[in-house]
Design a protein around this nucleic acid. Sequence first.
DNA 1: TGACGAAATTGGAACGTTCCAATTATGAAA
DNA 2: TTTCATAATTGGAACGTTCCAATTTCGTCA
Lengths: 346, 346
Amino acid sequence: MVKERVTVIDIAHAAGVSKSTVSLVLQGSSLVNEATRAKVNAAIRDLGYVYNRGAANLRQAKSKIIGIVVNDLTNSFFAELAVGVDAVVQSAGFVQFLANTGEKIERQREVVASMREHGVSGLIVSPARGTEVADLAPLVDSGIPVVLVVRDIAGADVSSLISDNHAGAMAAVRHLIERGHQRIAFLGGFPDTAVFEARMRGYRDALIEAGMPTSESLIIGSAPSRAGGVTAVEQAMMLADRPTAALCFNDAVAFGVCDGLRARRLEPGVDFAVIGFDDVIEAKTAVPALTTVSVDPQGMGQRAAELLLKQIKAGKVEPEAIVGSVRLVVRQSCGAAVERKREALA
Amino acid sequence: MVKERVTVIDIAHAAGVSKSTVSLVLQGSSLVNEATRAKVNAAIRDLGYVYNRGAANLRQAKSKIIGIVVNDLTNSFFAELAVGVDAVVQSAGFVQFLANTGEKIERQREVVASMREHGVSGLIVSPARGTEVADLAPLVDSGIPVVLVVRDIAGADVSSLISDNHAGAMAAVRHLIERGHQRIAFLGGFPDTAVFEARMRGYRDALIEAGMPTSESLIIGSAPSRAGGVTAVEQAMMLADRPTAALCFNDAVAFGVCDGLRARRLEPGVDFAVIGFDDVIEAKTAVPALTTVSVDPQGMGQRAAELLLKQIKAGKVEPEAIVGSVRLVVRQSCGAAVERKREALA
DNA sequence: TGACGAAATTGGAACGTTCCAATTATGAAA
DNA sequence: TTTCATAATTGGAACGTTCCAATTTCGTCA
């Protein structure tokens, strides 16, 4: 059971060449003769050699590792984001460190430090709630490429890739207004986040644009989860004049809102219109299918990874702020189908 | 912008000691005088030193990295499993490589190879569908600790941590039988997997135990996803004598079954009893709350990580097969509440 | 046959750490 | 003082690779 590591030198001996030649073969150099290449490869197979990337990195001072730190992997939006990143990162021959911070700044600090110690060549970060510029400063100053996703941090001198939350929310609310809704709520999410802020502004601006009144009482925050959606809609239904429709902070909240509605014997998409945000995979198959603002988390992860790899390859870091376009996907939960039916009957 | 890496030698110069002393400080040795320790730490702060774990690993031949490869991160069961692993791994000062195989053996082979090259000290694997002993052989032979989770592979000489699928399924079906159901279906999942096999056997054994007939037509496979659940239940409702209850392959399928039921104007938990498997977080908050066999994916991830770390620490690999206990969590979707109400009225 | 450029191969230094054996400093006992 | 044990510090080798400059081999042409 004594596992002696087999090294490039062992291969060299076995193949009757020098370690330098073996190294050349390993990196697929065209300098080496076809016959020797074959000999070396045979030796590699025979001895069961496994490349030591750590040693190589040490010499080359560049790793094939990128880090991704997300604030809540339990949320399927972020899980999908991670698979998007994973897909492109794997194809590029990289491997990813994945860490979950659970919204804890301290954890985030630790994992980022740990990743730097491991020599990641780049980092994709969906920052924990409350992350400040100062938290990222040491990382950014070190010169390693960083791209922020989902949540931007004002003043941080790094690339970011966020979706157009304002435009998406406006589109959703416009749609609700067109369907004739007069009292539209904005449900869920933590009010102290940039994403909430942007979506809520879009909601408000759409109302203003239509000359409709805005009311603070119709904006109800909650945890951005399914459970949060349940409590938010309960609160909304306590109001003196209840809303008839809602734009939700995200899809998880929207599902919770549907749950809460059903608990009150109200059928989402019939008695009450609900629109989500993000378009997670389940949105399509849920009943009723969720009308939502499509953000395509996997695609976002892919774009983020591509941006990061580009920066790693380029060597110099030229911050770039991308806002991903977004589109309203009309399905059943906003009652559009019902409206259409009614129109057809009329 | 020219970032010169600061090394242990730079620190040594700045603090007026030797690199060996700095190294001692770094690893918290008690051999070093308090005063010099302070000097060194000050220098570390001043120069913004970051430890190079790669170099250390090279010398020590052991890394603080573990790998986790899952077959489908998009499925929230596995996402939660990953966060469970992450939590304990982080606390132990390790960092995790996370790779998603998307059920593709080839991908799995690649990522496992890549992780070995990066020198992971251990690996947690939820194998892709169709993984065979031979696929794992090179990994296992290398002597690095491996623990299989969720899906076991017969004949593989490694530790495994799977839940008691057979007992869980039996408990669920017994419950359905007690509630008076006569025609109970088993819906969803790929029939060629060990997990399907175990759960299906549990389902069948419970029927046999009760002296009830078993019928092939009531066992309907599908993709283990929400969409798969929809199609499975549609197929079930085409049957001549429809089932009145179903045990589903997993929670995702169960949600899909609820969706499909509603699409036919049937209320899950009232008109039809459904039980899931896994107990993902949404099971509790869904409406109706899902009765399910609780597997606690996060806890499973934690246990797997603990087992792996134990083996890494022990040095020698003593394969250990753990089957995690499982319990039926009765909520609303199986119609228990309704039954009780009926009993109370009677 | 010699010379020459191109192709192929090579030894050694370097990457940043840890470990070992050896050295030096410190303080207490003689 | 000297002596000794103990505490603290240290230089150098080693880990497995890559890179560079240098060398050897080869085929071709004069």
